[in-house]
Every structure is written in C-alpha cells, then in structure tokens.
C-alpha cells in the first residue's frame, strides 16, 4: 500500500512560528517605519544608517526570517479565511497554489534582495 505523507504538519508549524515572529516584531516595525517616521513624530535614521545596518549579516538573517516566516503564517491563515470565512471551497487547489506560491515568491525575493546588498 502506498503511503502518502501530508504537508499539513509542516504548514501548521510554519504558521505558528510565523505567528510568533509577526506578533513580536510587526507592531514596532510598522509603528516606526509606516506611522511615526512618515508623520514626523520621530526623527528617522538616515538612509546611509539603514544601509549600514542591513549590511550586517545578522540584520540580514533577521530580515530574512522576519519575511519568510511571516509570509507563510499569513498565507496559511489567509487560506483558511477564504475557506471558512467566504466558504470558497470549490477553488481549494487554486487558492493553495496562490497562497503558498505567493509566500514562496516573497521569500525568494527577500533572499535575493538581501543577498545582493552592496
């Protein structure tokens, strides 16, 4: 008998790891870069400072993990939002491909951008 292995445990593992990472880090990231700096509440660091920051290997690893795990968390949760919330069950396979495919494209993009930091 052929045994088929399910991908679900891995996807749930990525979902919870990404849930922790995004819950811990996203509020402060968004508050600083998307609200406080554009509104002038806080003095933003110069672009040279940010470049010097992302030149550090540790910061690049941090940003990669931040993007990779958050994307797979978001993809998994969005898949079930469509499934339970909007009851789009007949498009299941297409939705899976778009959600996890999108997360994969984002992860590869993050790796590429961080790899070629001058």
């Amino acid at each position: 008998m052929k045994r088929t292995r399910s991908n679900e445990p891995l996807l749930w593992l990525l979902f919870s790891a990404g849930g922790v990472v995004s819950a811990m880090l996203m509020p402060v990231h968004l508050f600083l870069f998307a609200v406080a700096f554009p509104l002038g509440w806080l003095d933003p660091p110069s672009d040279e400072t940010l470049l010097a920051l992302i030149r550090q290997p540790l910061v690049r690893v941090y940003l990669f993990v931040f993007c990779f795990l958050s994307l797979f968390h978001g993809a998994h949760r969005f898949r079930f939002t469509l499934y339970d919330g909007l009851q789009i069950k007949h498009l299941n396979e297409l939705i899976n491909v778009l959600c996890y495919g999108g997360a994969l494209v984002g992860t590869v993009t993050a790796a590429y951008l961080l790899w070629r930091v001058p």
Binding site: G18, L30, A34, F78, G106
Partner: peptide, 9 residues
Amino acid sequence: VGWTVLLTL
C-alpha cells in the same frame, strides 16, 4: 501581515 512584508521588501 503580507502587506507589512511587502513594505519591508
């Protein structure tokens, strides 16, 4: 969460 990653990238 996806939007935040997009902004970061």
